[in-house]
Design a protein around this nucleic acid. Structure first.
Length: 304
DNA sequence: CAAAGAATAT
DNA sequence: GATATTCTTT
């Protein structure tokens, strides 16, 4: 027997579950090279019911973020990392779906500005206080609420538009890819991030790559910021424009977390454009000195 | 097999 | 249009 009140109760329950989902299992990745501080921060985060993963250098952090095995809400980075400059690190995480928060000893505006410009959500003074952590938690929850509401709206729109269409199962346009029979390409990459991982707390979170809460997970992709691009150019000019291979560029750039593929892709895209021409619209005032470019066909137009 | 480079896909 | 991913060649 269904009483009128039950419906109401159900609605209330689902709403409560919704809220519960939005305020629990907030995952944070902490990056700090100092172990003791890492422990201190982790404890504090735990006490505010965060799920904490700690890492002692940025390379490990970038790998974890790129793998997307765990969907981190928050990235807490110490400003003085040995392996890479914070601002570079920030720009690397720009398009990943996390809120980056920088912990810093410094308080000057120059630093603050640079960090914020590079995508930091907040810059906090060290040592972290419990209050700051509580605030961070609220930031995340607010973020989640906004996302959730956007999602709900989107779903409603989708439902409305696809009302009467039969479920056309993915006949992807164009040619079919990899329909070849034979051993599936299921090479499990043995990534050894565990070497760099100090510890992972909370449960062992083994969700497959289905979307957990919020549907579409944003595709992460690297943004080639001017800083990164400068490193790239420096590497190339050091190698000589003639023979510069992605792997060597990668090594020379020495940016943790950057992959050879990404460099290759950038090289391809960059190479298609103007290669150090007579400065049509070069965005960067990089003192790029081309080394032995064979250019026997200088424009004859110059001679009338 | 690994890496580069070209061709596509997102 | 920028970046990623896949395919083909080296």
């Amino acid at each position: 027997m269904l009483k009128l009140g039950d419906c109401f109760q159900n609605a209330l329950n689902t709403e409560m579950n919704e809220h519960l989902n939005l305020v629990t299992s907030i995952k944070v990745l902490v990056v700090d090279r100092k172990m003791d501080f890492l422990g201190y921060v982790a404890d504090m985060l735990h006490s505010c019911s965060f799920e904490v993963t700690c890492v002692d250098h940025s390379g490990a952090a970038l790998k974890l973020l790129a793998k997307k095995k765990i969907k981190f809400d928050l990235l807490l980075i110490d400003s003085d990392m040995t392996d890479v400059d914070v601002h570079t690190f920030l720009s690397l995480t720009k398009n990943m779906d996390v809120l980056p928060i920088v912990m810093s000893e410094q308080e000057d505006d120059a630093f603050l500005f640079e960090a914020l410009k590079n995508g930091a959500f907040l810059v906090l003074k060290r040592p972290l206080t419990i209050d700051a952590v509580r605030h961070m938690r609220q930031d995340i929850i607010r973020e989640r609420i906004h996302k959730h509401e956007k999602c709900k709206k989107k779903n409603m729109v989708v439902k409305a538009t696809t009302q009467a269409t039969p479920i056309q199962e993915n006949i992807r346009s164009g040619r079919k890819r990899k329909e070849t029979c034979g051993p599936m390409k299921q090479v499990i990459n043995k990534t050894n991030i565990d070497n760099n991982l100090l510890y992972q707390s909370s449960e062992e979170e083994e969700e497959d790559d289905d979307d957990d809460d919020d549907s579409t997970q944003k595709r992460v992709c690297l943004e080639w910021t001017p800083e990164l691009h400068k490193k790239f150019l420096d590497a190339i000019s050091e190698l000589g424009e003639g023979r510069c291979f992605p792997k060597e560029i990668l090594n020379l750039m020495d940016v943790p977390g950057l992959t050879r593929m990404q460099v290759a892709s950038h090289l391809q895209g960059w190479g298609n454009g103007e290669t150090s021409g007579a400065g049509a619209g070069d965005a960067l005032p990089v003192p790029f000195t081309p080394v032995d470019i064979p250019n026997p066909y200088l424009s004859w137009d110059n001679f009338g």
